[in-house]
Amino acid sequence: MTQSCGFVAIVGRPNVGKSTLMNRILGQKISITSRRPQTTRHQVMGIKTVGEAQFIYVDTPGIHLQTRDRNKAINRFMNQAASQALRDVDCVVFMVDRTRWTDEDQVVLDKLTHVEAPVILAVNKVDWLEDKTTLLPWLESLSARRDFAAILPLSAKDGINVPELEGEVAKRLPEGVHYFPDDQITNKSQRFLAAELVREKVMRQLGDELPYQMTVEIEEFRDEGKVIHISALMLVERHGQKKILIGDKGERIKKIGIEARQEMERAFDAKVMLNLWVKVKRGWSDDDRALKSLGYNLD
Rank of each mutant, 00 (worst) to 15 (best):
N124S: 14
N124W: 12
N124M: 11
N124D: 15
D127A: 10
E130Q: 13
K132I: 14
T134F: 11
L135D: 14
L136G: 08
P137W: 12
W138Q: 12
E140D: 15
E140H: 08
S141K: 11
S141A: 05
L142K: 05
S143E: 08
R145Q: 06
R146E: 09
R146C: 06
D147G: 13
D147S: 12
F148Y: 04
F148V: 05
F148R: 06
F148I: 04
A149N: 03
I151M: 03
L154C: 13
K157R: 11
K157E: 15
G159H: 07
G159W: 10
G159N: 10
G159T: 09
G159L: 10
N161I: 04
E164W: 04
E164F: 07
E166R: 02
E166H: 03
G167W: 00
G167I: 03
E168D: 05
E168R: 07
E168Q: 02
A170Q: 03
A170E: 07
A170L: 03
K171S: 08
G176V: 10
P181T: 11
P181W: 13
D182G: 09
D182F: 12
D183M: 09
I185T: 15
N187W: 10
Q190C: 13
L193I: 13
A195I: 10
A195E: 08
E200I: 06
V202G: 05
V202S: 10
V202F: 03
R204K: 12
Q205D: 15
L206C: 13
E209L: 06
L210S: 02
P211Q: 03
Q213Y: 02
T215N: 01
E217R: 04
I218F: 00
E219A: 03
E219K: 05
E219M: 02
V227D: 00
I228P: 05
H229M: 05
S231Q: 15
M234T: 13
L235I: 08
E237G: 04
G240W: 00
Q241I: 00
Q241R: 01
K242Q: 14
K242F: 00
K242S: 01
K242W: 02
K243D: 03
K243M: 01
I244F: 05
I246K: 00
K249S: 00
G250P: 04
E251I: 05
R252T: 11
I253L: 15
I253Q: 01
K254E: 12
K254I: 11
K254P: 11
G257H: 06
I258P: 11
A260K: 07
R261V: 05
Q262S: 04
Q262K: 06
Q262P: 07
M264L: 15
M264H: 02
